[in-house]
């Protein structure tokens, strides 16, 4: 039972982590909480659905289609919504409100196009169940966790081991010095939005496939919890986001196990509250930390 619930928690936790990383990436580079992220996550899942249902692509092409379109949508959010504000020297709060507004617009568009009802989504990884230490575990949970983990590792390698990643870190730490050393700061910001949106698209697709349905409101709760995960782990810190996501995922399934299902939404935020009392910058966050 404990093992089962642990796996349940880790599976959903890696999804939170994948979404949380997107918040962290953009926050790291712009010092901005990007509230479009949860709607981009939803958009990503819908784009796979569009690819399969309307463009009749096979599932892998549909995911690729979603990655490109959603990633591009992320870049457009910055280019059309945020970059003009930065150029005019608008305050951070204007930019944040803009992201909230854009988020509503994206979700509203999805509502108009697809309605607000549950829509069935192909189950990509249904390979039944297996037994581990007496627990029944669905393969889809293992696969989802593994896919999310591989992506997180790949992202981490990209940021820490390539020179484009180096440029990203440079922009995060000292934007003016990065610019003066020949880094195209706007290009790096676009790339960051692309990566954030694409990872959200994958997370949305994984969840839609895990639940076997999607709907326009699917990002509401996950978006908030992933944001909580990012702050819990220390926003701006990539390992922090992963840790935060896993902690929230596991504590939720443990809450269902020990307390009951109605505590599920409370746990994430109670935990956040407690951790911030002790470590105001999150578990792996540092005061004024700019490290990804």
């Amino acid at each position: 039972m404990f093992v089962e619930q642990l796996i349940n928690g880790l599976a959903i936790g890696t999804i939170y982590a994948l979404v949380a990383v997107g918040y962290s990436l953009v926050f790291g580079i712009l010092r901005l909480v990007n509230f479009t992220h949860s709607s981009v996550y939803t958009l990503g899942a819908f784009m796979v659905y569009v690819g399969v249902e309307y463009l009749h692509l096979n599932i892998f092409l549909a995911i690729l289609f979603s990655l490109v379109t959603t990633g591009f949508a992320g870049v457009m959010i910055d280019k059309m919504g945020l970059e003009p504000l930065r150029k005019k020297g608008a305050s951070k709060i204007s930019a944040m409100i803009t992201t909230i507004g854009l988020s509503y617009i994206i979700i509203n568009c999805l509502n108009i196009a697809f309605g607000s009802q549950i829509i069935r989504f192909p189950d990509l990884f249904n390979y039944g169940t297996f037994k581990l230490l007496g627990a029944t575990i669905a393969w889809q949970q293992v696969i989802i966790g593994a896919v999310a983990l591989i992506l997180l590792v790949a992202l981490s390698i990209f940021i820490n081991r390539t020179r484009i990643g180096l440029a990203m870190r440079a922009v995060q730490q000292e934007p003016s010095a990065a610019a003066i050393n020949g880094i195209n700061v706007n290009m790096i910001i676009s790339l960051t939005f692309f990566l954030g949106a694409a990872s959200a698209a994958i997370a949305g697709t994984l969840i839609a496939s895990y639940n076997q349905y999607l709907r326009s409101s699917m990002g509401d709760i996950v978006g908030l919890k992933a944001f909580a995960a990012a702050v819990l782990g220390g926003i701006g810190s990539l390992p922090g986001s992963v840790l935060g996501g896993l902690i929230i995922g596991v504590s939720e399934s443990m809450a269902v196990y020990k307390l009951g299902g109605s505590y599920i939404d409370m746990v994430a935020f109670s935990l956040l509250f407690l951790v911030l009392l002790i470590r105001p910058y999150g578990i792996l966050g540092r005061k004024g930390s700019t490290k990804v």
Partner: peptide, 20 residues
Amino acid sequence: RLFKQMRVIENVMVGTHIKT
């Protein structure tokens, strides 16, 4: 304005980024 949380060599490699 160094990239303080990067290694010394990484700081210099940022400079070479332009020639990538």
